[in-house]
């Protein structure tokens, strides 16, 4: 666990890619992309192993169990699209309902699952918790913001890692879903968004912390 104070709140970055606020017993996960394989199949694409929803739910179940979370925020793109909810296998749907029972559950909408979803819980475009703003996609200039959307990943020791990105103003969570790719931290979009002091915290038991990798030095620097 990687604990830190961020805009007056205690945060714990967990090896799974989830975020926990112990003072509020609040667990936040982003980009679950439930029903991804079903959506690809529906669209005539390949038939991927249809096990990602139960894998993602199993991970979420384990984190809720371990942290004893009273509130869960799903930070957008929880479903791969709006029809994915209908496509969930009955077992998976019941599992989700079981997880939600007795907890405050907030669905923040993302670009994949924008609009009303036919599932219990609170549905919000963004959420304010104390000093912190939870929204799906980071907004330039925002302060004390927690977001997801980009699925950041970094390379270290010849391996790709899902990663949290963090600077003074914001924290971006990695994707929690099983079938999710990622965007390299050195992508200009992320380099442009994150401040000079940004760090990446790598998912995994070590939760290694490294300076956020940035795009290679621009061509002109070397030419001279």
């Amino acid at each position: 666990m990687h604990a830190l104070s961020f805009h007056g709140q205690m945060l714990q970055l967990l090896p799974s890619g989830a975020l926990f606020l112990p003072e509020r017993a609040l667990l936040c996960v982003s980009d679950l992309h439930l029903g991804k394989s079903e959506r690809l199949a529906r669209r005539g694409g390949s038939l991927l192993p249809p096990y990602e929803t139960r894998e993602t739910l199993a991970r979420l179940d384990a984190e809720i169990d371990r942290t004893g979370a009273a509130t869960v925020i799903c930070l957008g793109d929880s479903f791969d699209d709006k029809a994915s909810l209908d496509g969930l296998a009955e077992d998976d749907r019941l599992w989700l309902v079981r997880l939600m029972a007795g907890r405050q559950w907030i669905w923040v909408e993302g670009n994949h699952d924008a609009g009303p979803l036919d599932i219990a819980g609170t549905h919000r475009a963004e959420v304010q918790i104390g000093s912190l703003t939870f929204r799906h996609q980071a907004e330039p200039g925002a302060q004390a913001e927690i977001s997801g959307h980009f699925h950041p990943k970094v390379r270290l020791a010849g391996k790709a890692w899902r990663a949290f990105l963090m600077d003074q103003a914001r924290l971006i969570l990695p994707a929690f879903g099983a079938y999710t790719g990622g965007l390299w931290a050195e992508d200009p979009v992320l380099s442009g968004l994150m401040g000079k002091d940004a760090v990446a915290v790598l998912c995994g038991p070590g939760l290694h912390r490294i300076p956020m990798p940035r795009a290679a030095t621009t061509a002109s620097t070397f030419a001279r």
């Binding site: 199949a41 529906r42 390949s46 038939l47 991927l48 192993p49 249809p50 096990y51």
Partner: peptide
């Protein structure tokens, strides 16, 4: 897809 979990009856390739 040939999976033990017959998930794609509706969306066969």
């Amino acid at each position: 897809g040939g999976y033990a979990l017959r998930a794609y009856d509706k969306w066969q390739r």
